[in-house]
Amino acid sequence: MIFLYAFLVGGAICVVGQLLIDVFKLTPAHVVASFVVIGAFLDVFGIYDRLIDFAGAGATVPITSFGHSLLHGAMSEGHEHGYLGIAMGIFKLTSSGITSAILFGFLVALFFKPKG
């Protein structure tokens, strides 16, 4: 069942993005930035965690989960070390995503040629 929910919820989040592009004439950059901020906002009330429980990858794969993870990491350190902890923990959970994006992006750029 989780597979169906992942497909439906992930697809629905993309439809919201498509409407932002088509109806509100946002650029992809604006859409992605808005989604990250929205993801962080939804984490404040624990809504995003419930969405992850329900839809699995349908909630963790869209870029909204990046904002959610940033705040999650910041809060976990924040509870231990106070305000300084926020800076210490902000990349705690997203580290693997950013690291792999830089690493694979760099390696692909080294070995491939743009096709046009």
């Binding site: 597979f3 497909f7 409407l19 990858a57």
Partner: peptide
């Protein structure tokens, strides 16, 4: 603008990427 077609395409492609993600996660 073909709003409906655009949304349908965004839905099934985006949904499929998440589905693949779920398979990998499992």
């Amino acid at each position: 603008l073909p709003y409906v077609t655009n949304c349908l395409n965004a839905f099934w492609v985006g949904g499929s990427i998440c589905l693949i993600g779920q398979v990998i996660q499992t």
